[in-house]
């Protein structure tokens, strides 16, 4: 087991990701943020908080998306859904999709399908904390990346959050 990012590094990265999102979306008026259930929402919560602090505004359109019903491996074992909560229209909006780790790309593929059932966004961008870039099974790339990791398929990269696990850190295990 090896720690790749500590809690302090993660909080710096989250600040940077928030600023990078704002570079491309100056005031967030036509932008919505969607966190991916179940583990992307810890990151999206923090990015949304950072966006609010930087812009000094209370209101950011922020929703949660669960993709259980859209997965392509649904017959390999029963998957229990989490809550989806998108209480605004994404029609013609710019959507920032946020997840913790981008690995095979299959989750994001399912998320794009799910998202389209809510309307037709103008554009969808992807923001992840960890990009395992040599493990992709679909042509999907992030627009905002916390850290790129070239791990072997046998290795596991885990993002842990204080709210759910014992500590906030990114670790790699054999």
């Amino acid at each position: 087991m090896k720690t790749i990012l500590t809690e302090h590094q993660i909080s710096l990265t989250i600040q940077r990701l928030a600023y990078q999102i704002l570079e491309n979306n100056i005031n967030l008026d036509d932008t919505v943020v969607i966190g991916m259930q179940p583990r992307g929402i810890f990151l999206s919560d923090k990015i949304v908080l950072a966006l609010k602090n930087i812009l000094q505004r209370q209101q950011v359109n922020y929703g949660l998306l669960d993709i259980t019903f859209y997965r392509d491996d649904i017959r390999r074992g029963l998957l229990i859904p989490n809550k989806t909560d998108i209480n605004f229209s994404i029609e013609n909006k710019k959507v920032i999709l946020i997840d913790d780790v981008l690995y095979t790309g299959r989750t994001i593929r399912a998320a794009l399908d799910a998202l389209l059932d809510f309307g037709r966004p103008e554009k969808v961008e992807l923001c992840v904390l960890i990009d395992r870039r040599f493990s992709r099974e679909l042509p999907i790339q992030p627009d905002y990346t916390g850290r790129v990791i070239d791990a072997m398929v046998t290795q596991k990269v885990k993002v842990r959050w204080k709210e759910k696990d014992e500590a906030t850190e990114v670790i790699i295990t054999e």
Binding site: D66, T68, F69, Y70, I74, I80, P81, N82, K83, T84, D85, D113, A114, L116, D117, F118, G119
Partner: peptide, 20 residues
């Protein structure tokens, strides 16, 4: 009942259908 609650949310969407 908990799973049904998630499906009830699906039924509020503009496209009320999932590929499961």
């Amino acid at each position: 009942l908990d799973t049904a609650r998630q499906f009830k949310e699906v039924l509020q969407r503009p496209i009320k259908k999932v590929p499961s």
